[in-house]
């Protein structure tokens, strides 16, 4: 192949030159330092696993987008985190309790929670996601109303709780009662769906590092969720992202909170085992 030079007159501010043929740009080598601490954005994949090397989606973003995540004052998700903290301490519901009534200081009691979700729940007989666990606490312990999956308060709370695990390695249970859920998630991950007839693996396993028109394909990990997307102009849940990718391939998405999306969430978390939790991450 020759190296014809195409002019990439940027649709936005940036313009650049792309030399076709030389430049299949994989992840970059930037380091994710927040508050003087480095977060793990790549590691060797486990023997026999699908990914030889595991990379956070942050490593595939443009440096301007990456920069938002380096400084909590620049990170546009932080007003929501502040709201989450406020909600944590707000008494709501007939029981006259707040989250803090039972769980005290989130920075101690919620450490590691995001990193291990979804988590098996014996009483429920299925895994809890962070969202379903929050709602279970609200309805059973606070005697307050459940929040909708994508409600601003829910996103604020999942960001605030998620932040308490920032930097910790993703580590979900996949054996025991979780195994069949993980297997189901894997099956969904490799199934071709939609009129465009593609699986998650077609983009995020077979083609990460390449451009798909204006988008730089990552491995599609979920260690940064809820994530602030510049395109959304706000935070979105893991299941919102799944839904978007399915719509792009002209498939009917599963519902947020469905067993299918919970299984897919578990499987994706397990594929990213060892990546640092980045919540709340920033993506374009």
């Amino acid at each position: 192949m020759n190296s014809t030079t195409l002019k990439w007159a940027g649709l936005l501010a940036a313009a650049s030159i792309f030399a076709a043929g030389q430049a299949i740009a994989g992840p970059d080598n930037n380091k994710l330092m927040i508050d003087g601490k480095e977060l793990v954005t790549d590691l060797k994949g486990p023997e026999g696993g699908p990914l030889e090397h595991i990379y956070s989606g942050w490593r595939f973003r443009a440096s301007e987008t990456q920069a938002f995540e380096l400084d909590d004052f620049e990170n546009p998700a932080f007003p929501a985190v502040d709201l989450g903290e406020e909600l944590w301490n707000t008494v709501e519901g007939e029981a006259g309790k707040s989250c803090a009534t039972c769980h005290n200081d989130a920075s101690e009691t919620m450490k590691g929670v995001r990193a291990s979700m979804p988590k098996w729940n014996e009483k429920l007989g299925k895994p809890h996601t962070l969202e379903t666990q929050i709602n279970a606490c609200r309805t059973e312990n606070l005697k307050a109303e459940a929040w909708k999956w994508e409600a601003p308060n829910m996103l604020a709370m999942t960001s605030y709780i998620g932040l308490q695990s920032r930097g910790m390695p993703v580590n979900v249970q996949t054996d025991g009662p979780m195994q069949s859920w993980n297997d189901k998630g894997k099956e969904l991950y490799y199934s071709r769906v939609g009129q465009l007839d593609m699986s998650c693996a077609n983009c995020h396993e077979d083609n990460y590092g390449k451009m798909i028109r204006a988008d730089h394909l990552s491995q599609g990990h979920i260690n940064g969720f809820p994530t602030y997307r510049l395109k959304w102009g706000g935070l979105g849940s893991i299941h919102r992202r799944f839904s978007g990718c399915m719509k792009n391939i002209r498939a009917t998405p599963y519902k947020r909170g469905s067993d299918e999306f919970i299984a897919l969430e578990l499987y994706l978390a397990s594929r990213g085992t060892g990546l640092a939790v980045e919540t709340p991450a920033v993506r374009n």
Partner: peptide, 17 residues
């Protein structure tokens, strides 16, 4: 070498009607 692009609002790759 590729200069990094800001792709913020460049749009979904394959969505269509």
């Amino acid at each position: 070498m590729r200069t990094i692009l800001k792709m913020g609002l460049a749009g979904a790759c394959l969505a269509a009607l």
